[in-house]
Design a binder for these strands. Structure first.
Lengths: 208, 208
DNA sequence: CGATACATTGAACAAATTCAAAGCTGGTGG
DNA sequence: CCACCAGCTTTGAATTTGTTCAATGTATCG
C-alpha cells in the first residue's frame, strides 16, 4: 500500500518508518473502530469505506456528529490532545484502515517539521469539512437535506443502505423513504431499472 | 495586552514580533468580522466577547454553524488553506480582537516549530469543540437543547440577549421563550427577581 | 412621555417522528 | 426448485413539536 499517496510531504525513509509502526486492517459494515471512552493507544487512518462518528445519548439514541470519507484520520483530535475518545466510530460500509501505534506516531509528529505542516493542513481541512457537514445537518427541511446529500455524494447514495444514509443525516428511515418518493414525484430523481442483458439468449433469439 | 497569555510556547522576542504584525481592535454586538467570500488578508483572534459563525442560505435565513468563545482564532482554517472565507462571522456581544496580518502570521507559523506545535494543539481543540457544538445542535428536543446551553454556559445565558441565544441554538426566539417557561414550570430554573438596593433612600428612611 | 427594541403569548399550520403493519428481497435449508 | 426466514424498505395514521404570523406586553432611553 502506497502510504506516500496519503503523506505526500514525507520522503522514503520517513514513509518506511510510518510503515514500521503501523499495519493495514480490513473492517466490515457495522464494525466498531473505537468506543467513546476508549484510550487512543492506536491511531486510525481511513483509506477505504465510510465511517460514522457518533455519540449515544442517555436515552440510547445515537446522534451522528460526522461521517468520514478517506483518506482521513479518525478521532485524531483525541490522539493529539491525549484524552480518551469522547465519541464512537463505526464502519458504515466495508473498508480499510491504517492503524498506527499512537505513541510512536506522536513522537514522529513532534520531531518532523514536514509532517507537522501536513498535519496542520490536514486539521484545517477537517475543520472546514465539519462546518460543511454541520451546515447540511442544520438544514431542517428533509427534502433539501436529502437532495444535498445525493448531489454531493452520489456514490454513497448508491452504495450505502438507506438505514445508513438516514443515520448519517440524522433522520428516520421512514422520513428518508418518504422524501425519496417525493423527489421522484417531483422529477428530481429518476428511477432507473437496471436491465440485465443476457447476451447468449439475445443471440439465440436472433439466430432463430 | 499580554499576548504571552494566549501564545504560551513563544519567547519574548517571538511575542514582540507577533505584536509588531498585529493590533487590537474593539467591536460591538452586531458588528461583522468578515463576510462569506472575503479574502483572509487579516487573521482574527478573539480575546473578549462571543462570535457567531454562520452561513446565509438562499432563502435568506441565517444558519448558525458555531459560536466562538475567547481565546480563539476565528476562521483560521481558511487562513491556513489560503481560501476565501466560506462562512461569515459576527459579534454576538461587545468584544475585543487581535488582528494579524495574515501574510506575516503564516510565514511565522511556517518557520516556528513551537508555534506549529501550539497550532496543532489549538486546531485539535477546535475540532473537539466543534463536535461538542454539533452534538448540542443536533439535539432536536428544544427543552434539552436549551437546558444543555444553560448548564454549560450559565454566564452567556445571563449576558446574551434571548434573540442571540436563540440564534446560536438555531431555534426561534418564540420557542426559546416558551421553553424557558416550561423549564421554570418544571422547577429546573428558578426565577430570581433582582432587587436593586437604593442605598441613599434606605439611609434617608433610617434617618427619618 | 413616546419611541424603539426586545420578549411573550396565542392560534393555526407544517413537518418529522413514532408505532404498527405490510411489502420486498436475498439467502438458506429441506 | 420452492418455502420460509431475516433484514431492510415502504406505507398509513396518529401524534408531537417547532415554526409562523399577528398581537400584546415590557423596558429602557432620550
Amino acid at each position: 500500500m502506497e502510504y506516500s499517496k496519503f503523506f505526500k510531504s514525507l520522503n522514503n525513509k520517513e514513509i518506511s518508518y510510518l510503515k514500521s509502526i503501523s499495519k493495514i486492517i480490513e473492517r466490515k459494515e457495522g464494525d466498531i473502530i473505537f468506543w467513546e471512552g476508549d484510550t487512543p493507544k492506536n491511531t486510525f487512518f481511513l483509506i477505504e469505506g465510510v465511517v460514522k462518528i457518533y455519540k449515544t445519548s442517555n436515552n440510547g439514541n445515537d446522534i451522528t456528529l460526522n461521517y468520514i470519507l478517506p483518506p482521513s484520520f479518525i478521532g485524531e483530535f483525541a490522539v493529539i490532545k491525549k484524552i480518551s475518545y469522547p465519541i464512537s466510530a463505526e464502519m458504515e460500509s466495508n473498508g480499510k484502515l491504517i492503524v498506527f501505534e499512537t505513541k510512536n506516531l506522536t513522537k514522529f509528529l513532534d520531531k518532523n517539521r514536514n509532517f507537522m505542516r501536513e498535519m496542520i493542513m490536514y486539521l484545517a481541512n477537517k475543520i472546514e469539512k465539519n462546518y460543511s457537514y454541520c451546515e447540511d445537518l442544520m438544514e431542517k427541511n428533509a427534502k433539501k437535506k436529502v437532495a444535498k446529500f445525493i448531489k454531493e455524494h452520489e456514490d454513497l447514495f448508491f452504495s450505502l443502505k438507506h438505514t445508513k444514509i438516514a443515520s448519517i443525516l440524522n433522520i428516520t428511515p421512514e422520513t428518508l423513504s418518504r422524501t425519496l418518493r417525493e423527489l421522484k414525484n417531483d422529477g428530481l430523481i429518476e428511477e432507473r431499472k437496471i436491465v440485465k442483458i443476457n447476451k447468449s439468449k439475445l443471440e439465440s433469439l436472433l439466430n432463430d
